[in-house]
Each structure stands twice: as structure tokens, then as C-alpha cells.
Amino acid sequence: MKWLIPMVVVTAVLAFVQLLTGSSMSPVTALAALFGGDGTERQIIVELRAPRVLVGLGAGACLGVAGTILQSTLRNPLASPEVTGVGSGAILGAVVATTIGSESPIEMVVLALLGGMLGGGVLWLVASLRGSDPLGLAVIGVLLSAMLAGATLILLTARPQLAGAMTQWLVGSLNGRTWEHWSALWPFLVIGLAGAFLVTVVLGVLAVDDDHAKAVGVSVTPWRIVVLMLAVLTTSVAAATTGALVFVGMLAPHAARALVGSDQRVALPLSALIGAATVAAADIVAQNASLPAGAVTAVAGAVVMIHVAKRTSAATVGGMR
């Protein structure tokens, strides 16, 4: 509990700063505009800034949830939407949606969902064929992601009029997010967050060992499908509404676990909050440097991933001796 409340405050502050960024408004004016009034300030805050902030927070929370689920269920500290093929599959789906000319974010979410299931399904297949040591599976996941990203790029170039959105899809960005994106995002966010929270106990059990899970009474395969579907759902909706915010889903669960340990009932909401805060912070930096937000998270996340890969490799090899 002790970290949840401070993290809510941190996230709220970051979100407020993000709201102010680029609007050249004093905090007071912005607050006033947020809660009423009219005129250009209200217009800017409510129509332009607020959806951007909300979509970013929502997508970050989704990725935090997805990362927590993937890492505990696959028992792999390196698992995240990026290294499981789920994220790139979802992006591919969303790009397919734009390629066939769908405009509504909802259709994009649905196709992203299908793409995410494709990516996750292939990884599942490979894992069941060859067994799953964490590092080996992560390498396959990276390859799978590279393949799906290649397919995405082919699609983007096949329709040159879409190529302008290339950066958006490949690293993720919050530019031009509208209330429509938010309304496509929030129902899935609620389902994902609530669903994942309700099954946190199962996540904790699955994180130990299949035999252990069966012994205490968890039917492993059905539950694993359920929780992985929640991960695919949250990843896909984030991908469809913001593009690939690279490495947020890897970073947030690690930070959460480092702070509160492995009690998923606390770690999961905390990871969602940290995901949201990370995206808000990245977007603040990104807007000040006119970068895409995903580029910022990619660089920050790469550092964390390197650290974790080293620790995991040391632990695995050490364990085998």
C-alpha cells in the first residue's frame, strides 16, 4: 500500500505537467479551463491537451498491466509486449486496419487484438514445441517481433499515403490523439485492469511453477489462456491508440516489483501506475524536444532491458552449475 498512494500523486503531477506542456498557459489558467469556462483556453485544454494526456496515461497503464501479466505467467523477467511478438502483432493489426481504410479507432482496436493474438499464438506454439527457458524464448520473441515489424513496414510502404504515420506506428507517439481514441481505449483499459486485478492471485501462483499451481488447485492451461488474453487485450488497445510505446511494458513491472516485491495485488496496480507515469514523463520530454514519445521510452527501456538481461543470464547460468 505504501507505494500506491505516492505513485498516484506522482502520476497526477506528471499528468498535470503534461497537460501544461506546449500550451503556454499558467497552471491556474489551465486548471480553470479544465473545470469550466469557455474560450480558446478551454478549447485547447479540453479538446487538444486532455485527450492526449488521458490516452497516454491509459496506454501506459495498459502496458504496465500487460507486462506484469506476461512476466509472471511466462515466468520470464524479460517478457514484455516487445519481446513476445504480442506488441508487434498488435501494431501489424492496427496498420492493416489503416491500410484497408478503416477510420474508427474501434476497428483499429479489434484488428490490433487479432494481430496481438497472432503474435502471442505463434510464441505460444514455439514455446510448447521447444520448452521455454526464459532467455531462449525471449530471443525467439525478439525475432518474431522483428518479423512482424518487417511486415508492418511492407504494408506502410505499399500504401505511400500512410507512410507519413510511420514514426507513429513504429515507435509510438501521442501526437494528435483525440477523444475518439480515448473512447476506444477506456472500456478495454477498465476490462483489462479490473480483470487482471481479479486474477492477481492466480498470477502469483502461476509465477512459481506449473506443478505448484496444479498442486494448489489452479487449472494451469485455461487460466494461462485467460490471463494471456488479458495481456493481449491491453497491449493491443495501447498499440491501436498510441502505436508502439517501446519498452514501457518491460520497465513498469520491474520498477513495481523492485518497490513492493511479488504480492501481485499491490504490484499490479502499481505497475499500471508506473506505466502511466512513464508515458506521461516520456511525453513531457518528447514534446519539449519535439520527439515521438516512443523514442524516449525506447532509449530508457533499452537501458533497463540490458540490466535485466544481464541479471537473468547470471542467474540462469549460475543456477545450472
Binding site: L291, V299, G301, K310, A314, V317
Partner: peptide, 27 residues
């Protein structure tokens, strides 16, 4: 880092960051 897999993952992370730099530059 120990072992080929860790090396590859770390290389992949570096590559992802570099690709982000590439995309950011073009943006």
C-alpha cells in the same frame, strides 16, 4: 552478461534504441 542469448537480447535492446534514434531524427 553470460551466454549467447543474453548477448543477443542486449544487442537487440541497443538496436531498438538506435532504431528509435533513427525514427526520432526523421521525426
Amino acid at each position: 552478461a553470460v551466454g549467447p542469448e543474453a548477448t543477443l537480447l542486449i544487442g537487440a535492446a541497443v538496436s531498438a534504441a538506435l532504431q528509435a534514434v533513427l525514427l526520432a531524427a526523421s521525426a
